[in-house]
Amino acid sequence: MNPVLKLLVEGGNLTTAQMAQVAGLPEAEINRHLEQLKKDRIFLGWRPVLDLSREAAAAVRAVIEVKITPERGGGFNRLADRISRFDEVESCYLMSGAYDLLIFVQGPSLQRVASFVSERLSTLEGVLSTSTHFMLRSYKEGGYLIESAAEPADRLKVSP
């Protein structure tokens, strides 16, 4: 595995200078690896992991199960891509099982998310049904615990 990719997967939150130290490579080499990962569409971009429930203007989030009609030639892909392009859609996955797409959406209010579902998503040709679940509370976000944030290990400062 690309050494930079390995460090990214581990989610260690390292700067490129730190990655250079850890991997034992010059920083320019780290940047070159990052560029290559971007070119290969493996590394898509940086995003912070946020707990917006602590923020007054918290976003409303929902998970929507969507059944769609596969098309001859394109299968689910064309419609999935079309749905994915809406700004409200954070993530979109093709699933096995009782429905076809699972999409994660986000909006400033319940009404806005609801109207996205009723007016735009479910009216798309090929969308057979939707089932929307609003998220009430988050316990873990992108690998981070929300409430019981891991406290720093309480180790003795010197031990044998």
Binding site: R155, L156, K157, V158, S159, P160
Partner: peptide, 14 residues
């Protein structure tokens, strides 16, 4: 060491 602040300890055997 225990009385000092801001120490990075490489003295820990665990």
């Amino acid at each position: 060491v225990a009385k000092m602040k801001d120490v990075i300890s490489l003295g820990i055997g665990e």
